[in-house]
Design a binder for these strands. Structure first.
Length: 180
DNA sequence: AGTTCGATCGCCT
DNA sequence: GGCGATCGAACTG
């Protein structure tokens, strides 16, 4: 089994909460670890990647391009690498605060429709690397009213290694995804 | 110790 | 559609 892929699909529709802001996950990507050239954990445990090898249900937050933070959720048992990048959220609570944090965003659909955008909109940063998302301050919860989803699959965005693998999952026709 | 380059975004043309 | 911003992790020598 590859739990990471199942988790990436199952996270669609789930809610991410941080303080007064929250959003519904509409787009994810799976990063498999050893053998997945695009994964930070592909080359084993380093100071940066140790949380990816840690227990599931924790957050892996890293800095990309020197400017933006990206949020991942660890999916595999301790000792095994595997995480899910949260790529886009549909804003739910705290929308005025999100707009204040991202003044350049025009329209609600642009507030959190990208991995760097959603961390900034929710106030998530490197200080949250390693936190348990079942305990806070970041919380990830099942949707209050689960519904069947039409899930689309594609290649992952913005990578060169292992670029052909179908490991991006998003809610079809949802206006809050980062790309069609 | 030096170099390369990236799981991005927003502004420019 | 193209590119500059900005910096640390990881690899090379």
């Amino acid at each position: 089994m590859r739990p990471t892929i199942e988790v990436a699909r199952a996270l669609l529709g789930a809610i991410v909460i941080h303080g007064p802001t929250s959003g519904r996950i509409v787009e994810t990507e799976a990063y498999l670890g050893i053998g997945d050239g695009a994964a930070h954990s592909a080359r084993g445990i380093t100071p940066r990647t140790e949380v990816i090898f840690g227990p599931p249900g924790h957050a892996y937050v890293y800095l990309i391009y020197g400017m933006y933070d990206c949020l991942n959720l660890i999916a595999e048992p301790e000792g095994v690498a595997g995480g899910v990048l949260i790529r886009a959220l549909e804003p739910i609570d705290g929308i005025p605060l999100m707009q204040k944090r991202r003044p350049t965003a025009r329209g609600v659909e642009n507030l959190a429709n990208g991995p760097g955008k959603l961390t900034r909109a929710l106030g998530i940063g490197l200080q949250h690397n390693g936190v348990d998302v079942t305990r806070g301050p970041i919380l990830v919860c099942a949707p209050p009213q689960p519904e069947p989803l039409d899930i689309a699959v594609s290649r992952r965005i913005g990578i060169t290694q292992s670029a052909d693998l179908p490991l991006r999952f998003f809610i079809r026709d949802n206006r809050f995804v980062s790309k069609k």
